[in-house]
Structure formats: C-alpha cells, structure tokens
Computed example of a mutant assay.
Amino acid sequence: MQQKQTPSALDRLKELLARAGFDWFLGALIGMILLAYLWPAPGVQEGPLSLGELANYGVSLIFFFYGLRLSPEKLQAGLSSWRLHLVVQFSTFLLFPLLALPWHALFKGGSNELLWLGTFYLAALPSTVSSSVVMVSIAGGNIPAAIFNASISSLIGIFVTPLWMGLFLSASTEGFDIWQVMGKLVLQVLLPVVLGIVLHRYWGAFAEKHRQKLRYFDQSIILLIVYTSFCESFARNMFRGYSIPDLLLLGLTMICLFFLVYGIIHLISRMLGFKREDRITALFCGSKKSLVHGTVMSKVLFPDANMVGIMLLPIMIYHALQLLAASVIAQSMARKAGVAAEGE
C-alpha cells in the first residue's frame, strides 16, 4: 500500500495564500496597470456607457451584495467582546493614521507628496473582510469576533475615511467638498449596504450560496476601476518623476508599517490580558487594510481622476505584502497550536 505523500512547507504555504486571496487576482492587477500603460484610450473616454461610468455602477452593486451577505444575527453574536472590538477599531482608524501623520511635514511640497497622501489614504481605510476572517480561522482565533469587526469596520469607514482625508484634500485639492463627498458615499455606498441588509432575510441565503461568483464580480469591478484610474494617470503623465527606487522605498515603508502596527497590537493585547483566541483576532483584523474599499471609495473621494492611480499604489502594495506576511504568521501560529495540543 502506497503511503500518502506529506505536502511540503512550500505546498502548504501556496494553499494558504490561495485561501487568503493571494491568487490570480494580484497578477491581474499588475496586468491592468500594464494594459493601462500600453492602451490608455478606452479608460479615458467619457459618456453614459464609458468604462468609468460602468465602474461607478459596479461600486454600488458591490456594496449591495456585501449588505446582502451581512447577517444581523452574526453581528449581534459578536457584540459581547467589546474590549477586543475597541482595540481593533482603534488600530484601524486611529493608530494607522497617527503613525502616518508625522511624516507629512517631510514630504509636504515635494515630488513624493502624492505618495504620502496615498499612504495616508491607506492608513484611513477600513479593515479587509474575507482575508482577515480566513487568517483568524487558520490561526485558531475568535471567528465570530473577526466577522463582527471586519463587518463593522467597513460600515464605520464610510464615514471616518472621508473625514480623515478631508483634513488634506480640502486644502490641497480644488473641488473637494467633504459634505458633497459624504452625500455621494451615502448614495453610492451606504444606501446599497442598508438595502442589502434589509433584503438579507429574503436573498441572503442566495448570496451566501453564490458567494464565490459574487467575489469574482467584486474582483472584476476592482480590476476595471484600477484600469480606468491608471489610464487617466498614464494619459496625463502623472507618474513622471517617480523612479524605481521611489517605488521600492514605498514597498519597504508598507511592510514596516504592517509589522509596526502588528507589534503595537500584540503589546496592547498582552497588556489587556486577552486570551489567545482574542489576541489572534486583534492582530489579524487590526493590521489589515481593504483593497476593495480603497479602490471603490477612490471613485468618490478624489475629484481629480488623474491622481487616483498614484493614490492606489500604496494600498495595492500593502495588500500584497499583508497577505504574504499574515499568511506566514497564521501558518506559524497554527503549527504552534498543533504542537501544543499534541503535548497536552
């Protein structure tokens, strides 16, 4: 009888990355940027059926389907761990921006100020949903609390993200009106979410059954937004003056930011005496940022379409690096938990 071959560490890591969303999508994102560079014309055309307008409609559908899958019962079940929720939301909406703020003086008025603004936009975004829950599940954390935090973070971000960005965009960007932006977000994002939640009891099971197909739809809209955004930027030479070392430095900054936040959350969780499951949830939910929200909200937040491509660079780089780093950490935690269980 032939023995079953034990998967190698590399095979396990590949499987883990695939479960977390580190798959064809990241390659497709790079492909969209390359396509925008080679063929920007379709992305800059205007009209009721232009690619940009289709992306706008897609944004509302993404948040409608998100609300449709949002179970009020699951949210209610996660309410009890209030200290854990405070730590995660503090990290997501206060710690990240406060870590980025002091660097503004260094880049203000320079050629890399837009890259800093994109980094601050990343810092002001809500936490990601699916990959956070996946990582918490793999590492053996508090899954109901992870679902609650990831979901409530998305709703809070609709209001908090534009408020943070308004501190700088209102002063540096013509045509930025915080109340107008909030109105657009309410109509294009919040209203579809609320409508989806209201209809959850009727279509929630259908949305959950077709979750994977809806995820492909979400990813398609994100790819369309990335393509049109970079078309605008490339067509108007917005990346002129940015070198490869600039982008490498940005990548290094993103990974340092991830581990800095991760370390601070770990310290806070220890100080508050969180049990292992809650500490894992705090670490993975509090250190992640949502590419989905970053991409779709950029359509509303930034009146100057030319700058959107640059604004999305930090979140795209952070998204890739956070998946890689968090996957390795989750695998290590799962392995240690397994060893500990065997020793009992």
Rank of each mutant, 00 (worst) to 15 (best):
P144I: 07
I62S: 00
S81H: 13
P72L: 11
L35M: 09
L13K: 13
A41M: 09
L98K: 06
F107S: 09
L84M: 12
L106C: 08
W39H: 07
K4P: 03
F107M: 15
G27F: 10
Y121K: 08
I30M: 13
V136Q: 04
L54H: 10
D23I: 00
I143D: 01
I33H: 03
V136G: 06
Y121S: 10
F25M: 09
F90A: 11
A146R: 00
K108Y: 13
S60G: 07
V134M: 14
F107I: 06
G109K: 10
H104G: 15
Q5S: 12
Y121E: 09
P48W: 08
V87N: 01
I143Q: 03
P7G: 08
V136H: 03
L35R: 03
D23Q: 07
L94A: 13
T92N: 04
L70F: 13
G141E: 05
A146Y: 00
V44W: 12
L26A: 04
G109N: 08
Q5P: 02
P48T: 08
L115P: 10
L75E: 08
A20K: 00
I30P: 07
A36I: 02
Y57H: 11
P102S: 14
D23L: 02
L17W: 02
G31V: 08
Q45S: 12
I33E: 05
S131F: 04
L51N: 01
V59A: 06
L61G: 01
K14G: 05
N112E: 15
E73V: 15
S130A: 15
Y37K: 15
A145M: 04
L38I: 14
F65W: 03
G47F: 06
S130F: 10
G78A: 06
G43F: 04
P42C: 03
A9Y: 14
I30V: 15
L101H: 09
Y37I: 01
A105P: 04
V134H: 09
F90D: 02
L16H: 10
T92C: 05
M32Q: 06
W103K: 04
L17R: 00
Y121T: 05
T128E: 07
A145F: 01
S131H: 05
F90W: 14
R69Y: 01
P126A: 04
A36Q: 01
F107Q: 11
R19C: 02
S81F: 07
V59G: 00
Y57I: 09
S8N: 10
L84A: 08
S71P: 06
P72R: 06
R69D: 01
F22I: 07
L13D: 13
F93D: 04
S60M: 00
L38F: 14
P7Q: 11
L94F: 12
T92E: 01
I138F: 08
S130I: 13
K14T: 09
L106P: 03
E53S: 13
G27R: 05
V88G: 02
A145L: 02
K74S: 09
S50A: 12
A124P: 00
V136S: 04
F25W: 02
L13A: 15
W39Y: 11
H104D: 11
